[in-house]
């Protein structure tokens, strides 16, 4: 299953579905997501806003607080089934074995405590270190994520840091208990471009040092190309293509992935407008029974009225186009 044959997967999702019952009807935010993340591997999940990437990750940690949410499927972390365990059982896993980084560093930290206090809080929640030991560790961590003068900055409040520095603090906090898995929910979206590159570098370095696996959620194919070993592309809550990063980026199979890759501007190519995928993500209430992308797809066929099967192999996709049709279409385009 995984390209990392030498190790059992750290995280394995099988047919994870999250739906919310609302007054307007049932919303399937995540519909049959399966993926597996090997040790030390970086798995990218990519898709437009509203494609269910973040909901899937929050649900697996039990962070979905909505009483109307129903979560089915299986989530195995280190071989243990963790889906549906209560808060009590999840607490040691959250922050201890699975660290999480959030999209907006400006609001992710409690404004009234120093960053050191917040890191110490997490360390002491999961270990028996004394306050002084935990604080020493917090200073060490802040230094590791590249915060200058960490010894002094540990006593600063979140509002005294810039966005990029705050994201470093959040990363330091997520790494504080040496988690086996780091889930990063659009960690660079709220940051400016140079800071983005620094944060991605930092995450790669931490992955190498601590050998933790990373799931990175993004809508930026550039981030995927930079970081990911494997990719899952999601559309309207469903996985539509998955495989090793190079295969997916070089030989994308699904028309939606073609569109996503086509939307990345290239240096040296002059064009009047940025390439886009026609149409919008449909309302989650009227996702079609068949292929979810069919309404926007330029190559829609009669078969698309039925839901395409998830193909076998290492590079999988869910599309009715045959390989010969694909080759022909791609050749015609370029």
């Amino acid at each position: 299953m995984s390209t990392n044959e030498h190790a059992a997967p750290v995280l394995e999702l099988t047919d994870l579905s999250v739906s919310f019952s609302t007054r307007q009807g049932l919303i399937r935010a995540v519909d049959g997501l399966s993926l597996s993340v090997g040790r030390g591997e970086v798995h990218g999940i990519v898709g437009e806003s509203g494609s269910g990437k973040s909901v899937a990750m929050y649900s697996l940690l039990g962070l979905t607080r909505d009483a109307n949410a129903s979560i089915t499927g299986s989530v195995r972390f280190e071989g243990r089934e963790i889906l549906g365990s209560g808060d009590k059982a999840m607490q040691p896993i959250r922050g201890g074995e699975i660290g999480m980084i959030f999209q907006d560093p400006m609001t992710a930290l409690t404004p009234v405590y120093t960053v050191g206090w917040q890191i110490v809080e997490q360390i002491r929640q999961h270990t028996d270190l004394t306050k002084a030991q935990a604080k020493a560790r917090a200073i060490e961590l802040l230094g590791e994520v590249g915060i200058p003068d960490a010894k002094r900055r540990v006593d600063s409040y979140p509002h005294e840091f810039s966005g990029g520095m705050r994201q470093r603090v959040v990363i330091a906090m997520a790494m504080s208990c040496n988690p086996k898995l780091l889930i990063a929910d659009e960690p660079t979206t709220a940051l400016d471009v140079t800071t983005q590159a620094q944060i991605l570098d930092l995450m790669s370095r931490l992955r190498d040092v601590h050998n933790s696996s990373i799931v990175i959620i993004t809508h930026d194919m550039g981030v995927i190309a930079e970081m990911a070993d494997r990719v899952t592309v999601m559309y309207a809550g469903r996985p539509i293509e998955a495989g090793p990063e190079l295969d997916v980026v070089r030989h994308p199979r699904h028309p939606y992935t073609w569109g996503l890759l086509g939307a990345v501007p290239r240096i040296g190519e002059r064009s009047e407008r940025l390439a886009t995928i026609a149409g919008n993500v449909m309302s989650p209430l009227d996702v079609p029974v068949g292929c979810a992308f069919a309404p926007r797809c330029a190559y829609v066929m009669d078969e698309c009225a039925a839901r395409p099967p998830w193909s076998d192999g290492d590079h999988r996709s869910a599309c009715w186009l045959s390989d010969t049709q694909r080759v022909a279409l791609r050749r015609k385009e370029s």
């Binding site: 959250r94 992710a108 409690t110 809080e121 997490q122």
Partner: peptide, 21 residues
């Protein structure tokens, strides 16, 4: 607020999140 989500992701108990944060 987002910081409460962070606190949950840190593995804190609901009581601690409610009172301390």
């Amino acid at each position: 607020e987002d910081y409460v989500r962070t606190a949950r992701a840190k593995g804190l108990s609901e009581r601690r999140i409610l009172v301390k944060h």
